[in-house]
Design a binder for these strands. Structure first.
Lengths: 211, 211
DNA sequence: GTCTATAATCGGATAGAC
DNA sequence: GTCTATCCGATTATAGAC
């Protein structure tokens, strides 16, 4: 049904349903973990029956993989082509921090699902990470190292610098619950992210500043 | 049986068994999450039967809470009294980073269990965090802010500085799987932690250096 | 304290009507 | 594509002998 655009995408309705299921699944997986998330709970959050959900995704694991795929697609789309070797290092890193923090603010569930998978050892998604994430990371590290070789930034460990930037920015999604307790609010506010951006940018730009 | 020290701790044997169960539980919970961890798997890892385990811990949730309690006890014991207001700020922060990284290296499972609980919203442990972690954090933040008021360190956002230090150091336990893939090794080596300590210390000390 | 056996429940998955 | 009904395995937890 609903054939459109002659040939491609013959089921726009199905795509919409799948998208709403995935969106609900991200929330529930982030909150409960893979095993803790009941398919019935995801279905309810998406507004359909468990059996109906399993018409679209034959198994729970298939749904989980799809969730991780979508999360990674979104993340990669935001992060690729940020590390421009010809840009001003401080500007590039500012944009990098901003993009990562923005992802934490706009898609905290996505960040948490991915984090849980990695913390558990990436038993299911390790191969995808190796194929899709590692190359991007390596490229960014190469850019940093070229800057160092050119004397444009201080000679720091590029790999661990990137690890640190990831950790700092991602924690505003993953550990938001603990941060909220410390800050004494129900949840993180926009101003918290602004202060985070300022502090992290300060740390990164000072770290790479040539003496 | 085994009454010792006249009055206190009448069951040293029981304490030993419980400790071995908790140690196994940390590993399994860290790998599989709360719901994903089967009590039978924990029992097997601890070297006893599931039914026997449940003689020591009547419910799975009781075991989980005990695991979190022990994790937090260990962490607090290592972290308290590190932020000495009278010490040299750079030295204090160096020791702080070192202690946190050491915890990530020596107790990665503990860090991961705690991280998973927080990522899932700390639904079970939020109150404990509020009572036991937040006061310690607030005290550390106070020390930082006093240093700023005294002009001993640069005027940065003390709260977010602490968040960043936590995130950077903790990530070497929580995201070790992803780091290993990037580094192309099976697991993180001692030298990786040394480089991490150098980089993180560099970032923190540069960030707080007065202009 | 440790064992065998079993109860009770939950959750993923399937079958088949419409 | 959506529904009703149901199966089946896994898992927590309990009962009771020794």
């Amino acid at each position: 049904m609903e054939p459109i655009e002659g040939g491609r995408r013959r089921h726009a309705g199905r795509d919409r349903v799948e998208a709403s299921i995935v969106a609900a699944a991200v929330r529930i997986f982030a909150e409960c973990g893979y095993e803790g998330a009941a398919v019935a709970a995801i279905a309810e959050a998406a507004g359909l029956s468990k059996q109906n959900l399993m018409y679209y995704f034959p198994t729970k694991q298939a749904l989980y993989q799809r969730v991780l795929d979508d999360v990674l697609d979104d993340w990669l789309a935001r992060m690729e082509s940020l590390a421009d070797p010809d840009g001003e290092p401080a500007d590039v890193l500012r944009a990098y921090v901003k993009a990562k923090l923005r992802f934490s603010r706009e898609q905290p569930g996505a960040s948490r699902v991915y984090a849980m998978e990695v913390i558990g050892g990436a038993k299911l998604y390790g191969e995808q990470i190796r194929q899709r994430v590692v190359p991007l990371v390596r490229r960014d590290i190469d850019v940093f190292e070229r800057w160092i070789a050119q004397g444009r930034i201080a000679p720091v460990d590029a790999t661990h610098l990137l690890f640190s930037i990831w950790a700092m920015t991602q924690s505003y999604a993953d550990f938001a619950a603990q941060m909220s307790l410390v800050l004494g609010r129900g949840e993180l506010a926009h101003e918290d992210f602004e202060r985070a951006e300022e502090l992290i940018t300060h740390m990164v730009t000072r770290a790479i500043a040539v003496a």
